[in-house]
């Protein structure tokens, strides 16, 4: 396992590449979910307010 992680002495460059890929894709997915959830809550609030106004 240690040998695998060491990547023949090239671990900073190999794992630095894979970690960045994992990191930026995770951030992209999290940002998408956050944006959608925030918009959804805002739309629901607007819909509630307009229903109250109708009454």
């Amino acid at each position: 396992m240690t040998e695998f992680l060491a990547m023949g002495g090239y671990w900073p460059w190999v794992w630095g590449s894979y970690a960045m890929m994992a990191g930026v894709t995770a951030v992209e997915i999290a940002q998408l979910r956050f944006r959608r959830r925030r918009l959804w809550q805002w739309l629901q609030r607007m819909a509630r307010l307009s229903r109250q106004e109708e009454r």
């Binding site: 990547m7 023949g8 002495g9 090239y10 190999v14």
Partner: peptide, 8 residues
């Protein structure tokens, strides 16, 4: 030639 660095 490049060892494991090529895995990038």
């Amino acid at each position: 030639q490049q060892g494991d660095s090529y895995r990038i």
